[in-house]
């Protein structure tokens, strides 16, 4: 006798849910059952939202941030931004925290990753050609490297610094590393303190 399982549509839903990041077989089953029992409205809303994403959301061809087919990229199409500074980040999601800080009004360039040979990711897999194209055509005076400070992030930064030496009129800078705002010295680890000391600024 064949063993009893959920009907095919439910099983199909579970299979799809399992592919989502952070969702294992148990969670997928729980979500699917909840949608079947209580979540018809949510489910239909979800399916509309998913369809809208698939249809409308694209990666901005210029900066790599999330954009819509209809209105394009909110950053690249804005006229209120400074056109001479470019901030390079690893992922489009890194743009939002920088935006929320309110301290940066220039343009962004997301690389969509970082160099990591052991994961088989090289410069060709990143949006580096798009970057050089932008720098050649644009009027950027300064490029800020806002990459993570682990080995891969640093390697990517070094790679870009070499690459950017082909644009002698552009100033290249990196984010400072140091003490977290509002934190005491006792809560910082040695490496952070060391970097903070090395990158100290004149106080008067």
């Amino acid at each position: 006798m064949a063993s009893i399982d959920y009907p095919i549509p439910v099983r199909h839903l579970i299979t799809l849910l399992k592919q989502l990041p952070g969702i294992g077989p148990k969670s997928a089953e729980r979500i699917a059952v909840w949608l079947v029992q209580h979540g018809t409205d949510t489910g239909i809303g979800l399916s509309h939202a998913l369809a809208a994403i698939a249809e409308d959301i694209i990666e901005c061809r210029v900066c790599g941030f999330f954009a819509t087919q209809a209105e394009g990229c909110a950053i690249c199409h804005s006229s209120a931004r400074e056109n001479d500074v470019l901030c390079i980040v690893e992922q489009p999601t890194d743009i939002l925290p920088l935006e929320r800080s309110g301290a940066f009004r220039g343009h962004y360039h997301s690389l969509r990753g970082r160099i990591s040979p052991l994961d088989n990711i090289g410069p060709d897999d990143l949006r580096i050609d798009e970057l050089t194209l932008r720098l050649t055509k644009g009027s950027f005076q300064e490029v800020i490297l806002a990459l993570s400070s682990d080995v891969e992030g640093e390697a990517t930064a070094h790679f870009l610094v070499d690459l950017l030496s082909a644009f002698p009129r552009i100033k290249v800078s990196r984010l400072a590393q140091g003490l977290p705002a509002g934190g005491g010295l006792h809560s910082a680890d040695e490496l952070t303190l060391l970097r903070a000391l090395q990158g100290r600024v004149t106080a008067s």
Partner: peptide, 30 residues
């Protein structure tokens, strides 16, 4: 960090017939 960068650098030196020196140099800095 040194050991991690060294693994990546050695991998790059071995991988291609013509090693990608700009990438290798990025690791040399580290």
């Amino acid at each position: 960090s040194y050991e991690k960068a060294l693994r990546s650098r050695n991998f790059l030196l071995k991988r291609d017939a013509r090693p990608p020196w700009p990438q290798i140099d990025a690791y040399t800095h580290i």
